Amino acid sequence: MKSTARNLYSGLLWMYVIMAAVSLGSTSHKLPSSFKRCRQNDAHLNDCLRVAVQDAFNKMMNGLPKLGILSLNPLQVSDILIRSEGAVSIEKMHFKKVLIHGLKGTKILKYKANLKQYILETESYTDQLSMEGEYTIAGQILILPISGEGKSNITLILGDAAVTAQSESDNLFFIFISAELHTNHTLIGEPVMKDNKLHMILKEYIVSFKPKLVTFNFENLFNGNKRLGDTMNKFMNDNWQIMFNELKGPFQVAFGEVFKEISNRLFSKIPFDNIFIKASEHKP
């Protein structure tokens, strides 16, 4: 499978990177004093980090103008391009001008850090997540061709909330619904010295999605042919396990690339010991 994510809006910040609370343009190179920090030798480091990351994420939800951080509610992405090969062969799945709603309800369930190996792992849960914008799709699902373009709305329903979606135009929109989605993140880094200070730079960012149900609805497929469009939607929903298993790889790789790029911009600004306090240092 192949996957590409490109030209991402700088406002895309991921909640599981602790120093995402710091602006790319900040000259202090330190976390704000109001943000919780954890000692490297804390016997309960993982519990401390889970609370600290949740606290930081909540505080920056509506943006931090003084730090140059834009709102995460919604979070903005300019461009995502997905390709896949296999039973679901997508020549192009292109999303543009994307707004992601629903991160405010995200809860961090677990956090695990191996600081000596520069590895961070976390698990999260979000009640409802929607992604709206413009899309173009062309490819083949099993033996059936699929094509369409226009406005889009992707909604992930993770609890018992009712599903609703609307488009501001008469063009098509796309709805993607995932039931009870848990997401695992693994950040694999390495030590890098910069200005005589230790930084953690990510080599890899692995994302894993685990839904219990996925449903699909594309409108205006095949240039608005309702009969063909309805048939394709039914076919995708009847075979949602195949659809998800084929597409999750490219999506996970694409989002992992996004998160690694953004994370490294921040990790390169903030020294490792300002994120994880040394035993000899006092908390602010």
Score class of each variant (00 low, 15 high):
71 S>E: 06
76 Q>L: 09
50 R>E: 06
57 F>G: 07
248 K>F: 00
64 L>G: 01
146 I>F: 11
142 L>V: 11
185 H>K: 10
161 A>C: 01
141 I>T: 10
70 L>N: 08
183 T>F: 05
45 L>G: 02
271 P>L: 07
162 A>I: 00
283 K>G: 03
34 S>I: 09
205 Y>L: 02
253 V>F: 00
23 S>K: 07
135 Y>A: 02
204 E>R: 15
231 T>P: 01
222 F>W: 06
10 S>I: 13
261 E>M: 10
180 E>Y: 11
185 H>Y: 15
52 A>D: 00
110 K>E: 12
241 Q>K: 14
80 I>Y: 01
107 K>N: 15
224 G>V: 04
195 D>A: 10
50 R>T: 12
88 V>S: 04
41 N>R: 12
137 I>Y: 02
23 S>M: 03
131 M>H: 05
226 K>G: 01
46 N>T: 05
19 M>I: 01
134 E>G: 07
224 G>L: 03
58 N>E: 15
271 P>Q: 09
95 F>K: 02
122 T>N: 13
26 S>H: 02
7 N>L: 06
217 N>G: 00
14 W>K: 06
159 G>E: 13
126 T>D: 00
269 K>C: 03
25 G>F: 12
279 A>V: 12
195 D>Q: 14
63 G>F: 06
191 P>C: 04
30 K>Q: 13
91 E>H: 13
58 N>P: 03
9 Y>N: 12
96 K>I: 10
148 G>I: 02
27 T>E: 09
158 L>E: 10
